[in-house]
């Protein structure tokens, strides 16, 4: 069967679901972050696939570059928060981080 737009979109949908599953179920903050990265990758596959099959210019690819930039910034800040969390609670399990007091 010829591989077309639907195949790429289906792949992205599966990746998105796996990422969502990790975000919803994992206790470890770093694993949740990995799930977020997976979701962003799925979104990027969609952008690039639409840029190839539907659009004729490169707008989709440019947006993919910006998504990657934002993901890098998010990962840096999130890991800083994780390290801070570990320093205070000696654990990075998200269900233990339920205190609002500083």
């Amino acid at each position: 069967m010829e591989v077309g737009l639907n195949h790429y979109l289906a792949l992205a949908a599966i990746l998105f679901s796996l990422g969502l599953f990790a975000v919803v179920t994992k206790k470890n903050a770093v694993t949740v972050l990995m799930g977020v990265e997976l979701i962003l990758n799925a979104a990027n596959i969609n952008f690039v696939a639409f840029a190839r099959f539907i659009d004729t210019d490169l707008d989709g690819q440019i947006i993919a570059v910006f998504v990657i930039v934002t993901a890098a910034a998010a990962a840096a800040v999130a890991l800083a928060i994780v390290l801070n969390l570990y320093e205070r609670l000696k654990s990075i399990n998200l269900d233990e981080a339920d205190s609002l007091a500083g």
Binding site: N44, A51, Q61, V65, I68
Partner: peptide
């Protein structure tokens, strides 16, 4: 495969 050579390399470099 989606003819996005630059994005592919950026993907490896950044991720």
């Amino acid at each position: 495969l989606l003819a996005a050579d630059f994005i592919a390399i950026v993907q490896i470099l950044i991720y």
